[in-house]
């Protein structure tokens, strides 16, 4: 059984006069001890998907359907109490805007203490302090951060506090939503190395949401490429990044510079995201795709298996 399995997950933002299809028909399986990077340009629905997994989207304006199975339990159907028991203990998140990730008028340590006590109500202060210091060490923060307020820390330090906070209860699944994007490259790789070490020692499974393909290439086993709320291609990093099948993945990779190999010109993908409040008949990428034909504009491609876990949603890719 997979650790996390998404089955036909749809997320809609419901506004007064329109509905925006932020995620459509997402099917994704994440095995235990996997590390998967979800990549895509801004607005492709990566963060929405991450928030949907923990049911963190504002209820009033969103509709989530489908199945999100975590160890066989459907996260969309369990009661709020069951969900709260699972949150942070099993699945934790490092959020995008970590500068505001903690209350500005409470000390960092006090807030971490509070979060620790949610799942360990009887824990005493010294025990918690020890645990937090341990985590601070992993993310390379000094102990005195415990006694500081969020505004006294730099953006990078707050980012590391958020990562330490997410590891507080040794979760099984860690979702990093652009968590290292704001850090300098040295700290970024240092922290990612530490997290990868934790993965081996603590059975951690990681979902990494980013638009930095190079981070995924160097730290993840698998990759999922999203565009306009749809999964375009998933598979192992070796398969997808070396030999992308989907025209969008190909375009995405061409717009990143590479250190090794030939110095090619960077090429962006012309055009921009389609209007997600309109129902799109065919492939969401058809308008920007150099290979699109009539079928692409009329019939929505579904994920087809290329090889093992390598799947692609394109009429043009694969055997035909």
């Amino acid at each position: 059984m997979s650790l996390l399995e998404l089955k036909d997950v749809n997320v809609q933002y419901i506004l007064k006069d329109k509905k925006i299809m932020a995620c459509q028909h997402i099917d994704l399986e994440i095995e235990e001890r996997d590390s998967i990077g979800i990549v895509g340009e801004s607005g492709s629905g990566k963060s929405t998907l991450a928030n949907a997994i923990l049911r963190l989207l504002p209820k009033r304006i969103t509709a989530v359907d489908g199945e999100i199975l975590f160890e066989g339990k459907d996260l969309l159907k369990i009661t709020p109490e069951e969900l709260n028991a699972l949150r942070w203990k099993e699945i934790s998140v490092v959020f995008q805007k970590s500068m505001n990730a903690l209350s500005p008028v409470h000390k960092v340590g006090k807030q971490m203490e509070d979060v620790y006590r949610i799942h360990e109500p009887k824990a005493n202060r010294d025990e918690i302090r020890k645990r937090v210091y341990e985590l601070f060490k992993i993310v390379n923060l000094s102990d005195r951060v415990y006694e500081l307020y969020p505004h006294e820390l730099s953006g990078g330090m707050m980012q590391r506090v958020s990562i330490a906070l997410s590891l507080l209860h040794n979760p099984k699944l860690l979702v990093l939503d652009e968590a290292t994007t704001a850090l300098d490259v040295v700290t970024q790789s240092q922290i990612l190395q530490e997290i990868m070490k934790l993965e081996e020692n603590m059975n951690l499974t990681r979902i990494m949401i980013t638009h930095d393909v190079s981070v995924v290439a160097s730290t993840c086993k698998k990759i999922a490429v999203m565009y306009a709320g749809c999964l375009m291609e998933t598979g192992t990093v070796q398969d997808v990044l070396v030999n992308p099948k989907h025209p969008y993945t190909q375009g995405l990779l061409k717009s990143f510079p590479s250190f090794k190999g030939a110095k090619n010109d960077l090429r962006g993908i012309p055009g921009s995201l389609p209007d997600l409040s309109q129902e799109i008949q065919g492939c969401v990428f058809a308008d920007r795709c150099p290979y699109a034909d009539d079928r692409c504009r009329q019939e929505k491609p579904v994920l087809r298996v290329v090889n093992g876990c390598w799947k692609v949603a394109c009429h043009k890719a694969g055997g035909e």
């Binding site: 923990l54 963190l56 969900l83 709260n84 028991a85 699972l86 949150r87 942070w88 203990k89 934790s92 998140v93 959020f95 805007k97 505001n100 990730a101 903690l102 209350s103 500005p104 509070d114 979060v115 949610i118 799942h119 958020s162 906070l165």
Partner: peptide, 14 residues
Amino acid sequence: SEDYIITFRATGMK
């Protein structure tokens, strides 16, 4: 509506 409220919600805090 602040971000830290989402953080606490995600931690399973009541």
